[in-house]
């Protein structure tokens, strides 16, 4: 588990590649009780002007949190986490799914001793979570 004494501003966290498939969308819909049909019904998604079924923004947010929790080792270290939902992530009906590349770095050490982490998440090279940051408290 990482300790505060080992961390300085500018440190890069190990990056993460997320793979999101249709099965992940169904699993997340069940776990989160978000049954909006744009996340599972191709016909409905197209009727409302989307290219097809898209991932729940909250699923991308939830999965991207792992770039921080894998690093801290303790998921309870995350005292704050926020994102802006940018471009949607279309999820094709195939075995590969959509790939989202997640990076993170220590942006600064705050006055209360917590660390601000700046996170990026990109699909096909374009940002899908804007201004994503977490604040972590380390032992």
């Amino acid at each position: 588990m990482i300790r505060a004494a080992d961390v300085t501003a500018g440190d890069q966290l190990p990056p993460l590649t997320l793979t999101i498939t249709r099965a992940d969308l169904v699993r997340y819909a069940g776990a989160s009780l978000d049954f909006n049909p744009i996340h599972w019904n191709e016909r409905f998604a197209q009727e409302v002007g989307l290219p097809g079924v898209i991932a729940h923004g909250m699923l991308t947010m939830g999965m991207a949190a792992r770039v921080v929790t894998d690093w801290t080792g303790d998921p309870g270290a995350v005292v704050e986490y926020g994102v802006r939902f940018g471009r949607p992530v279309p999820v094709p009906d195939d075995a590969e799914g959509a790939r989202v590349e997640v990076t993170a770095k220590v942006a600064k050490v705050l006055d209360d001793g917590t660390f601000k982490i700046a996170i990026t998440a990109a699909f096909e090279g374009k940002s899908v979570l804007g201004g994503a940051t977490a604040r972590v408290r380390l032992p």
Partner: peptide, 26 residues
């Protein structure tokens, strides 16, 4: 069980979401 289900759905692997003993140790 809901915590475990949600952790599975977002791919969080930590035992702190699943095992009360691991959570106590933390």
């Amino acid at each position: 069980e809901k915590i475990r289900e949600f952790a599975d759905a977002v791919g969080e692997r930590s035992e702190i979401h699943r095992d009360p003993e691991a959570a106590k140790a933390a």
